[in-house]
Structure formats: structure tokens, C-alpha cells
Amino acid sequence: MNIFRLCGDMTHLLSVVVLLLKIHTIKSCAGISLKTQELYALVFATRYLDIFTHHVSLYNTVMKIIFLGTSFTIVWYMRHHKVVRQTYDKEQDTFKHYMLIIPCFALALLIKTKFTPLEVLWTFSIYLEAVAIFPQLVLLQRTKNIDNLTGNYVFLLGAYRGLYLLNWIVRYFTEKGYRQWITWISGIVQTALYADFFYYYIKCWRNNEKLHLPS
């Protein structure tokens, strides 16, 4: 495992910590898209079905359990916690799940490595993760006052994807025969979705302004 992969995973973990900090400590999920969080829970549930059958390392197994556990915990907080759920911007978070889930599933049936249930679901999870941030980005654009934790959460998620791209470049040059086209192309699409957000995040940070996205 190279440094970019490790930093990518740690950035991903940190993004979850930041979000849980906001939800659990501040008891607010304002500006957070439940749609995106539900899509992430679905991503991990379909990708990590191999958790008991396919052992890579203790590190991988522990991380999988953390991402599965935290994603469902976040969804539970936003839907059921009596204080947190009242801070959810339901009227603004209007993106429809099926608009992302159905095309991703269709694509997974068409473009995959093997036609087995586990393989199709794994491929589906890769495609879905690439676009799962979409409802969150739409919600951010509609939010007038984006708080620091929400802005940092999305920034960390984008940074995690960017670090994974660097990880793949290193692996391509250091591991013989290493290639994974489905993951690479989805990863590039996913990172590109953050480009606009990054631009405004850095611009506002450099000007010492509060983060705001043009609508």
C-alpha cells in the first residue's frame, strides 16, 4: 500500500469523523443531503458483501466495517434522531435516488468483469459511488450559509478521491500488469464532479470568505 492510498483512506475516514462530529456533537445535519448518505450506505452494502469471504488484510476488513457501520449510523441519525432529524433540509434535498440508482445498475449489467451477482453488485457500487455526491452538491448550491463543517466534509471527500487517483498512478508504474479500467474511469468521473466545488472552496478560503457557491 502506497502513501497516497493510505492518505486517501485516512482522508475518507476523517470526512466521516467530521460529519459525525457535526451530527453527534452539534446535533445538526443542516446542509447535509440524506439522499447522498443513503446512496453511500447502499454503495458500501453492495460493495462489501465479500467481507467474510474475501480476506485481503485486517486493515481492509476493519475499514470496511467502519464505513458500513458509520454510513448506516449517519442515515439513522438523519432519519430517526429526534433532534437531528429536525435540522434536515428536507425541502431542499429533492434529488431522486432512482435517477442515479437505475442507470448505475443498468450500466453494471452491461459493463462488468464477470456476470455473477456479487460481481455485478460490486460494479454497481463503483458506478454509484462515482455519482453519489450529486444530491449533496445540488443541496450545497441551494444552501445560503454553508457552515465550515459541511464545507470541510465535502472537501475531504473530494480530497480522498483525488488521492486515490494518485494511488492508481503509482500502482500503474510500480505493479506489473496492474490495471482496473472500471474503477479508474469511475474514479476520474467522481473526482471531476468535485472540480467546481474545489474551485470555489479554495477561492473563498484564499479570500478569507465564508464558503458560498454561485447558483
Binding site: 474475501h54 470496511k64 468483469t113 505493479e175 490495471r179 482496473q180
Partner: peptide, 10 residues
């Protein structure tokens, strides 16, 4: 090893 089958990333 074929990395498409390895799935060693998260």
C-alpha cells in the same frame, strides 16, 4: 495476479 479480481482497495 489479475487485479480486477483482487479488489484490494476500499
Amino acid at each position: 495476479p489479475d487485479d480486477e479480481d483482487e479488489k484490494d482497495e476500499l
